[in-house]
Amino acid sequence: MNRAGWIFLGLLFVALPLSLLAGRVWIDPATTPNAAVILAELRLPRALLAVTVGAGLGAAGAAMQGYLRNPLADPGLFGIAPGAALGAVASFWFGPILGIWAASVWLLPAFALVGAAGAMGLLALIAGRTGGIALFTLAGMMIASLAGALTSLAISFAPNAFAMSEIVTWLMGALTDRSWREVCLAAPLTLAGIACFWIVRRDLDALILGDAAARSLGMRPEILQAWLIAGVGFTVGSGVAVAGILGFVGLIVPHLVRPLTDRKPSSLIVPSALAGALLVLVADSIVRILPTVTELRLGIALSLVGAPFFLWLLLRMRRGSAGQLA
């Protein structure tokens, strides 16, 4: 692992215990009643879920920016997150129809994963044959737009105001009231996704030289694309399934990591996973501490930080070329 990886791993080891103690009510393991139960059943799964989801989004962002050679690329742009969100929203609709499953806690994550898989399949079907980057991007944007429209449609036809409020709140993204179940669902899928990115790290490096030179170095575009679709599907799909939509993590994190590395896409994957984990963990701890009437949704907090960052990035791009960006 490179220097950036060790730095973010070290910070994560510091942040994790702190986040377990942090909250509207700070826990003192020695004096707080039922501290062990609160830590084991509430705080620890929530912290590990933040680490898992953040790691997946960070690694996916690094891989997609490397693939598209664009510092503005975000895994959310490619239809898989909106596809998963559509699946989740559909679960609010189909739950009652499925009867016995309605009460199942697995219903929403399962539907979200089906939505992510559907978006992945569609992306592979449209863009996979040629392996072209432009077609991939356009197909991803089309799927994102379609899934977004269908999600809005589902919300507008919500059976009642309570269901509508439930859907909209869920879409904002949060880690409130999550348990070990969600960790067990997301962690293996996220690890599988990061492994997909790791497998194609050399191909992402070859793309520094452009598509033709990368192919001359043995990169096979259609195979690279298949691994990336699987990787984004596993990381982002499972992230949305357990936490809703958390924007901007995949965009911001590679920029924080890049100056600490040699800037090759392969050097960013693992450190971006660790930095993404750190960012979501810290952000989730902060929203717990903030003295708001109801807890600020994590997705909103990340967007509030992410949007100005995006603007700063655009202003920097105006001053220099994309390739010279952090």
């Binding site: 050679r69 520094i208 030289l209 452009g210 090759k264």
Partner: peptide, 15 residues
């Protein structure tokens, strides 16, 4: 086979 394309693409500012 070493291939050098016409456009000198260097996507990231590596050393």
């Amino acid at each position: 086979m070493g291939y050098l394309p016409q456009e000198p693409v260097i996507a990231w500012d590596v050393a």
